[in-house]
Amino acid sequence: MIFQRRDVYLWLLGGSAGSFNPIRRFIQQMPFQVHVAIVVCMHRLRSLRMGMVEAMGGTQGWVVLEPDDKTIIQGGHIYIAPADYHLLVEPEGYFSLSVDEPVHFSRPSIDVLLEAVVGARWPRAGAALLSGANKDGAWGLYRMYRAGYFTAVQEPSDAEMPTMPQAALSLFEPHRRFTADRLVEVCLYALSL
């Protein structure tokens, strides 16, 4: 089965403690883009199977959902990584889930998602890493940077929990540093490249 879905731009957001409000604000404010899929990988309690989509509130026309395994990636959609599964992007244009061991004590892991995008050689993608109390996502973002994708990191001084952005900045200087209130702007810039 071959899917022709790889024309979609993947905008990836990773965060942990302190990232929920900035990500929710972004989701509420981001103008609808038919060729963009937003993928959110946020650490959360494994028991919280339901309610994350509703907690994100209204959007500018995006469809918000937690993908099932093998859900086809479509533009105009916001995908929230489900609790207690890793979320991966497959080269053929759909998501896969896995219950492999947690990475940095986290499942879903931001590293796993970002590295899968690199491994899938997804044609167009960008990623932003936000507040968090561990270093999950830093390595994956660096892999994206090295692979030529757009990368952005929240200013540690702006982050409620600076460990995660600091971990990324200890590895490389991303294309953009941002404060949470400029996240929509950063995304629109990435899309314009």
Binding site: H86, L88, V89, E90, P91, S96, S98, D100, E101, V112, E115, A116, G119, A120
Partner: peptide, 12 residues
Amino acid sequence: YAPASLKRRLGT
């Protein structure tokens, strides 16, 4: 096998 997770598993 789904390639992304298989590759990750092999890498591990």
